[in-house]
Design a protein around this nucleic acid. Structure first.
Lengths: 340, 340
DNA sequence: ACGCTAATGGAAACCGTTGTCAGATTCACC
DNA sequence: GGTGAATCTGACAACGGTTTCCATTAGCGT
């Protein structure tokens, strides 16, 4: 029977025809995929563990790009992509245990998330994206720090000394407000922490006191949140000449807020983003572009080719500073160290 | 053993602790999800059959919205979402058979796609989105036709008689060119066909000869393709006063092409879209908004609640005409019936 | 007609879990 | 000490395929 479906060459066409015909007559719907998986020890799917906040992921074009790349890699290999339902509030790790998959990709998850721990307990290969490396686990990530450095250098060379930062959430607990230094250095979202650290290093290197640079955090990742963050930032620090956002979405919001205030970008205010999403490119945002599609694809391929390898791999993808029409010298040149 | 993991209340905490501790010591990774699925006859996942062209889906914010809604519904129910790898060229229906899922959602698939047929053969509940209804199958869809009618009416009342249309692909075979009437009426993508038919009906009703209205098709669904379609359209029919696009993405491209030509929107050219994606709203595009998130959510809930019902359901979601800053009366009023 | 080989069909083991059920053990209480 | 309830243990039969292995048969040469 099994042969009739899976190995047409192993039996006579006549018998095969008869078997299939009888099967149809009896209303047999074809081999059960679950039973097949059990026997063959192949689920034919890879699991994707996303942020515990799903909408967060789907609203961010950068995340969607990763998803697309991963889906493409899976499609190439003919395996399914299983989105694990990681519920926000409850620590519903059961979903991770219940997922019938041959491996996991973990993306955009805080490093203290119990779901991540549950994934690592499963006896299947795992690839993590944009996370701090974990002993023995494959990893794909951009060289964020390098690009951030170039961005900061760009702003410094333009003459900006009074800057403000808008970033995405740094931990699982909501904090729609200014960020303390402690929270910055203890951030559980690796990407955000890396970017902030790189900014701090670059500006400190240029003689700017990083402790004096205001950083505003937003839990949700929407254009509106970017706008409200910019409002909060500019209300408290009107002397700021450049708003650095850790994502393009937030930067779009900052642009909107600038317009609302009658500030011209870039003449009155410089705004920069991160990620290099299509819409940003369309409006000429100065940003750091990273190959999100490649990131997903690479992770997928890495996962699907594991088993052939033994030593865990780390792949670093290139990022690129893209100068747009939203960055220019500050509106007035102030004394470098004492402005305010 | 099973009890220790699944029914903590059936045995003493002490025993449970001991069992789990022993399990860990022996390196037991927890119950195998596949075997569990086989036994319980619940896969804990729903399958999603998307277009055979994955990038197509991920690049379209409207599709992503549906995906998000569906994912949210799944998350609520604690089940996974399994993206079925429907390979473009090859008729790799096997992936549908291999998917261990409790049901399927079918979205944006041409009505003659073999994957769709394969899904219908599987003995699990199915919900289809934006497709012509199929006997005995649940369905979720917008009342596209009504909204399209209102959009056409809006353009007619503004005075537009010389219009052109840019639409997404109508069949699985590529045709990046003008569309013949036969191809229009025989379109395999239900949504596109419905929209074209509704436009035809509305404009015919206003005395415009639909056979004389140029329709340009694009296989890929990108802003650039929208631009190239607009170029092709306006090169051949410079007298056109309004470009009607069957998606916002295409409309964004048409806007870009208009700008490239030095045409002011809406003074020189009216451009309209479809779907109501966020970016369209941001730039004030006149479009038809449909609740994409709700569409996905509804489909998910419908699927997950099936089994409780017997009669198949059809749910129609409301759409809404949103007037933006991209539609205005034509640049010159020409004689209604003989222009050109 | 006989023996050997190759092809083919069918039976049985196995994948790892859950659910059931009978029997053993413990414990409290009369 | 006996009884009953509560708890624990162990065995075993599905679930529905795949795979291995063996027996049968067909084909062929001598």
């Amino acid at each position: 029977m099994s042969n009739a479906y899976n190995r047409p060459d192993q039996l006579s066409p006549e018998l095969r025809r008869r078997v299939l015909e009888t099967a149809r007559r009896l209303g047999y719907p074809g081999p059960d995929p679950v039973a097949r998986s059990l026997r063959t020890r192949k689920a034919g799917a890879v699991g994707l563990l996303l942020t515990e906040n799903l909408s967060y992921a789907f609203r961010d074009p950068a995340a969607v790009g990763v998803l697309e790349g991963l889906a493409l890699a899976c499609e190439d290999a003919g395996v399914g992509l299983h989105l694990v339902p990681a519920s926000p509030g409850r620590e519903d790790v059961a979903a991770v245990h219940r997922a019938g998959v041959d491996g996991f990709v973990v993306y955009s998850v805080p490093d203290d998330d119990p779901h991540l721990a549950a994934v690592l307990e499963r006896p299947v290969p795992t690839v993590i994206i944009d996370q701090p490396s974990i002993e023995g686990i494959d990893r794909v990530g951009p060289d964020d720090a390098a690009a951030v450095g170039k961005l900061a250098e760009h702003l410094v060379s333009l003459g900006h000394r009074q800057v403000g930062v808008i970033c995405m959430r740094l931990a699982r607990e909501r904090n729609d407000d200014f960020v303390s230094p402690a929270r910055q250095s203890g951030a559980h979202f690796h990407v955000q922490r890396t970017r902030l650290e790189a900014l701090a290093a670059a500006f400190s290197g240029a003689g700017v006191d990083w402790a004096g640079v205001p950083v505003v955090e937003r839990f949700d990742h929407t254009v509106d949140d970017g706008a409200s963050a910019a409002r909060q930032l500019l209300d408290a620090y009107p002397q700021i000449t450049a708003v650095i956002c850790t994502s393009d979405i937030l930067a779009l919001g900052a642009m909107a807020e600038a317009e609302r205030r009658g500030l011209r970008v870039p003449q009155d205010l410089t705004v920069t983003g991160f990620d290099g999403i299509a819409e940003a490119e369309r409006i000429g945002l100065t940003t750091v572009h990273q190959p999100v599609l490649e990131k997903g694809k690479t992770a997928g391929r890495l996962l699907l080719s594991s088993g052939e390898r033994s030593a865990p791999k780390t792949i670093t993808l290139p990022t690129e500073l893209r100068l747009g029409r939203t960055s220019a010298p500050p509106r007035t040149v102030e004394e470098p160290w004492f402005g305010g």
